[in-house]
Structures are given as C-alpha cells and as structure tokens.
Design a protein around this nucleic acid. Structure first.
Lengths: 194, 194
DNA sequence: TGTTGAACTCAACGGCGTTGAAGTAGGCGC
DNA sequence: GCGCCTACTTCAACGCCGTTGAGTTCAACA
C-alpha cells in the first residue's frame, strides 16, 4: 500500500509560524473581499492553519482586522507636498487607480466595517493622523485645525465616490477637469482668509 | 365562545398583513442597527411573523433592505433651494442632527452594506437622483454635470465624517465657521468660471 | 360545498465566529 | 538522557445567521 500521504496543498507550517502566516493571509483576503466576506475559516485555510488559532493569536476576527489595518498609512508622505501644490497632488493621487490599489481596498474595508466602535475609531484615527494633524500643523491663519478637518472631509468625499460607490460616470469625465475643479475647492479651505 | 385568546405578546397578525408588518419592523431595525446587525429573525419577531415570510414576500434580506431604503429621498426638496443659498442650506441641514435623524441612519446603513453590488448601485442612484441630476439641471456654464458630481462628492464627504466616522472633534468646532468655510468650498464647484 | 392557490408555519441545512478540552512539541533544569 | 512546563496547535462542538422545502391553514370562487 503506497499511502503516499499526498498532503495535496496543506503543508503543516513550522511550529510557531502560524501567527505570521495568518496575518499575511488576512491582509490579502481582507483587501480582496472586505471584512465580512473574508471568513476566519478561509483566512486560516489560506495560511495553512486552524481557525481556532485566530482567536488564540489575535483574540477575535475584528482584532485581527485591526492588526492588519494598523500598518496602512499610505498617505503620510503625500501630505508633505508643499501647500501650494497639495490639493492638486492629493486629487491626482486619488484618481490614480494603480497607486491607490491597496489603499483603496483598505479604505473600503474600513468604512464598510465601521459598524464596530473599535473599527470606527481606527478610521477616525486614520483620518486624524494622515490628514488632519500633519496639515493643521502647517496651516497659517485662523482655525487651522478646523480647516484641516474640512480638507479631510472633502478628501473622504472623493474617496467615497471613487472607491466605495465606484462611480463610473465620474471616471468618464476629463481627469484634468476633475483635478483642477476639486483642487480649487480644496484650496478654499486650505487658504487663510484675506 | 368568546375566544378571548390572549396570546401573551405574539398576536397572530391578521392574515395578509405580514408583509406590511415586516416592512415596518425592518425600517426601524435596519435604521437602529444597520444591515448586518438587524437579523431576519429579529425583524420577523418584531413584526410578529415567521422568518420564512421574509423570503416569501421579499426574496431575501438584501431585497427587503432595498425595499426599505427605496422610499428614502430626504434631500429632494433641499436641493430646490436657490443656487446662491444652496451650499449654506445643505451644510446647515447636514449639521442639524435632529433633522438628519432618519436620513443619517439610512445613509450609514447603505454605505456600510455597499459590499453588495445591488446596494452599491442603489447608493449611486441615490446620489444621482438627490444631488447630481437636480443640481446639474440648474447649473450654468461649462461642465455642469461634472460640477454637480463634485458637489455631491463634497457633500458625501461631510456626511461620512459626521455620520459614519461620527467625528466628535468636528462637532466641538463652531458650527457657523464650519458652515461658512465648507459652503465656500462647495460654491467653488457650483459657480461657473469667470 | 369542494377546490384552489396564496399566505403562513415549522424543522432543518450549511456556514459563520467562537469556545473549551485535549493533544503536541520544544526548551530548560536535573 | 529524562521529565516537566509552557506555548502552540488541533478538533469537535456551540449558538446564531440567512435560507430552504415540505406541509398546513384559510379565504375566495365556481
């Protein structure tokens, strides 16, 4: 009897490596399918691990998601752009689907899972750290923080339309026109009063 | 025989009225808890009906949700405001938590359930019918539709920050300042080029 | 009155996140 | 080397989810 054992596709994973394997599989599957449709069982299977290990290593599916999303701060360097070019740079970046690839999926997953208070506060923190604080610190004039916050709101509006609603009509429009018009609106809150 | 029958709390629902009862309970529970956390069993129980009737009358939980959300067009009359006052009127309305009460919950439920293609397209349709089309029809100058679309994007940004992220920091700011600054940005895309 | 079909009930299915008990391996003192 | 102790892993099962199909009730019509 040959009993070749044929483990087909489930290699046993060296002992102790399950945590990292799960984290990697979760990053991929959460991005591809979102929080709800990436199941713990699928993530574990993709990592070659047991579903119960998700609870053992991370505590819950939600905690795993937060861990995955924790290291995504894609826009950090973008907002370092000089203030005069910031609005154009941001809108251009959002419209660049390729560059936005992973950040887009993470944003969508975060927003759609924002039922949960902890995920919602992570979303708020993400907005705060990536937009509000760095921009407010550089703004001159009155109400710098409020203006940075309204800037972030406008940016989230474009993200929502492009990445959540996936508005095809907007994509059919002239990209240059979108950039110049939306950037002009962004500049209104960036500029200090006369 | 009097047949007082007192069925404790589960009144039998007159035959034929289950559909309406489910629709009403669904409207309340979807708004209160969102799509995911309002379960079919809870909705049916609140309506005094059997869970299987949801499928019988509506086809699926998702179809029931779409039916509930179908008749929510809260902003229809708001965008009838004269163009000169439109931006201020919209921002003021969004900041008015009481007036926004039900529309706020429906918006949050829609966005968070936008995983599903049919719900996502309903969200797109909602943006289109309540903002883009009525405003584009009244705009003068070049690229009226694009400008209306960018107006809608900005509005969705404020909705997201206020109603999804539930940004407390923004609410601590001066409402008048928010209105004047965000409205100014909205006006940039509303106004025709010089 | 007998028939028919829409409305409804009920038990069950497979899949979900999670749980707790049982098993296993690897490092450390002896 | 031996045994233990702890961290890691496995497995079966729980309760809940949306959904399903077969069976039942009831009102309207011929």
């Amino acid at each position: 009897m040959q009993l070749a054992d044929a483990p087909s596709d489930r290699r046993p994973l060296r002992r102790g490596s399950a945590r990292a394997a799960i984290l990697g599989a979760a990053a991929r599957l959460f991005a591809e399918r979102g929080f709800t449709h990436a199941t713990v069982r699928d993530i574990a299977a993709a990592a070659g691990a047991d579903p119960a290990l998700v609870k053992y290593h991370f505590g819950s599916k939600e905690a795993l998601f937060l861990e995955v999303v924790q290291q995504h701060n894609e826009w950090r360097d973008l907002v370092e752009t000089p203030l005069e070019e910031l609005a154009v740079a941001v809108v251009t970046a959002l419209l660049d689907a390729d560059a936005a690839g992973r950040g887009r999926q993470v944003f969508a997953a975060l927003v759609r899972a924002s039922d949960s208070p902890s995920i919602r506060s992570r979303l708020a923190q993400s907005m705060e750290e990536q937009f509000v604080r760095p921009i407010a610190a550089r703004l001159e004039g009155a109400e710098a923080e409020l203006r940075a916050r309204l800037f972030a709101a406008q940016v989230h509006g474009l993200m929502t339309v492009l990445w959540l609603i996936d508005d095809q009509a907007l994509l059919r429009d002239d990209r240059a026109a979108i950039v110049s018009r939306y950037a002009a609106a962004l500049d209104v809150v960036l500029r200090a009063d006369d």
